[in-house]
């Protein structure tokens, strides 16, 4: 693949880029089976994680990925830094660039921030989630998990269920899966699913329509209570109307569908407890594959070059 400086969205990648990153994620995962789970490809390189939004999984996944590639990792915590004193993102980045970082992994509640940072500095910028815009590393780990489980994503049918409106995961994951030849549909509360004329993606009305659509993967999104100031739906309805209940789980088991979730799971909201134990529940595979996918992303980006 051509040298790329940043990873901001899936849309900015060519089909070749996507395949290259996914294929080397497989080799990265093989490293995990060795007794020494570390390779020296990024030795001497410095990685900064800059998370303006709370995150445990994505951040530690990136940190583990960087460590396994032998990079030095620095954690910048805006909530305890000058950012709370009102420093602009530009000034924070200028400060950080003086520290000569090679990779900056950024998460922010505002859509579009990683692109602003990428334009502003020489380091490779990896978008670890910006507002409702994009979450490309999640898309890679989801695509990787589906390829691993089914052999290929092509021809597979994936229904994404939940808060599509606020979900960067829905945007990036649906994009990568369609690029790989999978079919994607959305389902969720009417107030949280943008119409097909905006998304280009079919909207299914309810679970009956979901089962009738014959999906291979049921992908549940997290109900993001922290992102919603005024409720979009009555919370008490959610599990019954949109979650995987025990009754629905039986049908999912019968038809052998896979269940995925970006985590962290709200048990009893998106998934019933039993769903977490289901053999085709791929949530833990997603976490493990997240490290491999992120190692592959770090490996394929080239700091200081133009995208």
């Amino acid at each position: 693949m051509k040298p790329k400086k940043d990873l901001i969205t899936i849309e900015s990648l060519s089909d070749e880029d996507i395949c290259t990153i996914l294929e080397s994620a497989v080799s990265m995962k093989e490293i995990f089976t060795k007794s020494v789970k570390k390779v020296p490809v990024l030795r001497g390189k410095s990685v900064l994680t800059l998370f303006y939004e709370p995150s445990t999984r994505t951040r530690s996944s990136f940190e583990v990925a960087a460590h396994r590639l032998s990079a030095d990792v620095t954690t910048f915590t805006p909530s305890t830094s000058s950012v709370v004193k009102g420093e602009s993102v530009h000034d924070t980045i200028d400060t950080l660039m003086s520290m000569k970082m090679d990779y900056i992994i950024v998460r922010h509640k505002n859509s579009g921030i990683p692109a602003v940072i990428a334009r502003h500095c020489n380091a490779s910028v990896i978008n670890a989630g910006d507002g409702a815009h994009a979450h490309p590393s999640q898309a890679f780990l989801d695509a990787f998990t589906i390829r691993e489980h089914f052999g290929a994503a092509e021809g597979r049918r994936v229904v994404i269920i939940g808060d599509i409106l606020h979900s960067r995961v829905a945007r990036s994951t649906s994009c990568i899966l369609r690029r790989l030849g999978a079919q994607v549909a959305f389902m969720g509360p009417r107030s949280l699913v943008p119409p097909m004329r905006y998304t280009g993606i079919e909207c299914l009305a309810d679970w009956d329509a979901v089962f009738a659509w014959k999906p291979d993967v049921i992908y549940l999104l997290r109900v993001q209570n922290e992102r919603i100031e005024n409720p979009f739906f009555p919370a008490a309805d959610y599990h019954h109307a949109f979650g995987v209940t025990e009754q629905r789980l039986r049908r999912i088991e019968d038809e052998g569908m896979a269940v995925m979730h970006p985590g962290p799971v709200n048990r009893g909201v998106e998934l019933c407890d039993a769903a977490m134990e289901y053999k085709n529940c791929l949530v833990c595979n997603q976490v493990e594959n997240g490290i491999a996918a992120r190692m592959s992303i770090l490996y394929h980006l080239t700091p200081g070059t133009l995208s």
Partner: peptide, 12 residues
């Protein structure tokens, strides 16, 4: 509310 708002993740 549009394809732009959806694509860019901007609240409509």
């Amino acid at each position: 509310p549009s394809s732009t708002a959806y694509k860019l993740g901007l609240h409509p």
